[in-house]
């Protein structure tokens, strides 16, 4: 799956989890934490995204991401 496609899945899932962000203009540098996603939201978002990608990536790998762009990059690089 392309990195841009993964980014879009993350954005859509973030909107599903946090409906107040429906009209937010997402950028690569957006931090999930700053957007209002707590640690439970973030783990939920990652699992929703991995399911859509059908990818098997250890959760610990994603902890290094500082923003949505980095998260999409890690998922892109680690996908089997």
């Amino acid at each position: 799956m392309e990195q841009q496609q993964i980014f879009e899945i993350i954005v859509n899932n973030t909107k599903e989890l946090l409906p107040e962000l429906e009209s937010h203009n997402f950028s690569q540098s957006d931090s999930l934490r700053d957007l209002g996603a707590n640690s439970v939201d973030r783990s939920e978002l990652i699992m929703m995204t991995l399911e859509e990608m059908d990818a098997n990536i250890p959760m610990a790998q994603m902890a290094k991401a500082n923003n949505i762009g980095e998260l999409a990059q890690i998922m892109f690089e680690q996908q089997a």
Binding site: V40, E44, M47, L50, E51, D54
Partner: peptide, 8 residues
């Protein structure tokens, strides 16, 4: 697809 069980 059990590995995708939601953390919540």
């Amino acid at each position: 697809k059990e590995r995708f069980v939601r953390p919540t």
